[in-house]
């Protein structure tokens, strides 16, 4: 059996679903951020697989796209963790279940 594009796509889909479940179900804000990072990684893996197996004109642009996604992910984590610190300073918790100020 030759390992081709489908193997990487299925792996990326599996990783995305695991990250999605973590992001939806974890109680802790840092746990939710871990899930989001896993989802971004799965998308990057899919893009790099298309870069390797796709046509020549997509080979370069997908890799540039991955570089941009990594840069935006780094910015997102920095701001997200700073927000978690501010919530902790005001509420002494970073559990997403217990930050319910907007609950009616």
């Amino acid at each position: 059996m030759i390992i081709g594009l489908e193997h990487y796509l299925v792996l990326g889909a599996l990783l995305f679903c695991i990250g999605f479940f973590i992001a939806l179900s974890k109680k802790n804000a840092v746990g939710v951020l871990i899930g989001v990072e896993l989802m971004l990684n799965a998308v990057n893996l899919t893009l790099v697989a298309f870069s390797r197996f796709g046509t020549a004109e997509v080979a370069l642009s997908t890799q540039v796209f991955v570089v941009f996604i990594i840069a935006v992910a780094a910015a997102e984590v920095a701001v997200g963790l700073a927000l978690a610190l501010v919530v902790y300073r005001n509420r002494q918790t970073i559990s997403v279940d217990r930050t319910t100020l907007l609950k009616g």
């Binding site: 802790n28 840092v30 920095a78 610190l85 902790y88 002494q92």
Partner: peptide, 19 residues
């Protein structure tokens, strides 16, 4: 960065369980 955020919130829960 994530480890820093965990260490800087010392009195928050370390619990990683599901809701």
């Amino acid at each position: 960065l994530m480890l820093f955020a965990i260490m800087l919130t010392p009195r928050a829960e370390r619990d990683n369980s599901q809701n």
